[in-house]
Nucleic acid binder design. Sequence first.
DNA 1: TGGGAACCGTACCGTACGGTACTTGAATTT
DNA 2: AAATTCAAGTACCGTACGGTACGGTTCCCA
Lengths: 206, 206
Amino acid sequence: MSIDPNVSGEFSPRQSAVLAEALRLLVEGGDKALTTAGLARAANCSKESLYKWFGDRDGLLAAMISFQQSKVRTAERPGERLTSEALRDHLETFAFDLIEVLSGDVSLALNRLAIGQSSRDGSKLGRLLVEHGRRQIDRRARSLIDAGKRAGLLRFEDADGAYHTLYGLIVSDLHVRMLLGEPALKDNRVQARRAVDAFLTLHGTV
Amino acid sequence: MSIDPNVSGEFSPRQSAVLAEALRLLVEGGDKALTTAGLARAANCSKESLYKWFGDRDGLLAAMISFQQSKVRTAERPGERLTSEALRDHLETFAFDLIEVLSGDVSLALNRLAIGQSSRDGSKLGRLLVEHGRRQIDRRARSLIDAGKRAGLLRFEDADGAYHTLYGLIVSDLHVRMLLGEPALKDNRVQARRAVDAFLTLHGTV
DNA sequence: TGGGAACCGTACCGTACGGTACTTGAATTT
DNA sequence: AAATTCAAGTACCGTACGGTACGGTTCCCA
């Protein structure tokens, strides 16, 4: 993962600073704490600018999601020759990273926000989150799983099913529990290892 | 003593009717649609009664959770002699029921509500949901898993870990996706069977 | 039959938020 | 140097909600 100070040009530096402050407010106090007046005060900008840049409050929320995800890029490993140990390593790293991402303050806050709005806006934010945020991590897992199969180290018929199995083994009900306010795990590496062990028992060839 | 349709006796019939209406409003339009005035109008009661019965809005939300969970009781099967097929059947039934419960309108609405409030009230509603709502289903799964082990049909060291594995295999990211607004699965039985197959591959002795 | 409790319907109050309009001041352009 | 642009800051408006107060009605019980 690398931090990218928005080279994509979607948001100006000023706007990025405001969005960062908006995320800080959201993480701090939930969506009730994110008011237009409060954001303007905290970010030293005017409400009028907020409305000019983002349209309305929903536009601001959508921009916050885009902004956050423009900062998170998953490192894509180049395809090396896979050994059994390397595959296990990569899977564990993936599992660990996944738990870390899902446990992150900003991720939890944005997911809570989207879930809270899902009944009102027809899941617009939810779709944004799933499609943009998940795509990165999905692609990484898929390429890993496919590479494992090509190398003869994994066996499955349905790549999609295998990925969901892996995801479920890693996350279980942890995500929802954290969304509901439970503290994160003490050791994400243990959980990652257990999940990968199980996954390899199910789909490994060795 | 009078016959009270409310099993727990925690709420009077009138209060139960109001809480049922509150759940209906919540399912229909999310937490923004659940206003005290709106509930009073929809349930033909006065706001004053709402405040007398439930204290304030948060008390109403907590009462809604208690009320809903007082209605849902999981059927506890008596302990019969377990065969391999019976265990698989019971596991699949459990998996199916779990998905059905999590996919339910009211469950999703209450989870969304608790998640939305989790940043504000110190996860009070979240704890209520997890502790009261989850306990039933947890106990059912635990007793099933333990019975499987006693019958020599399952092998594991950590019952807690085994249960979380089962849960993850069944649910994967389905719960969060539904909370974010995605439609439910087309066929929950297929998913249940797949999950139980994997679980028995991991922890079955046959 | 009278009195009290519960409760409905409504009106009311304070507040807080989303969104708009206007003024001031600074920076950039011409 | 004048003009134009951009944004900060503030004041304002309408609305909607949580919570309270009160008059009127029904029902129970003595």
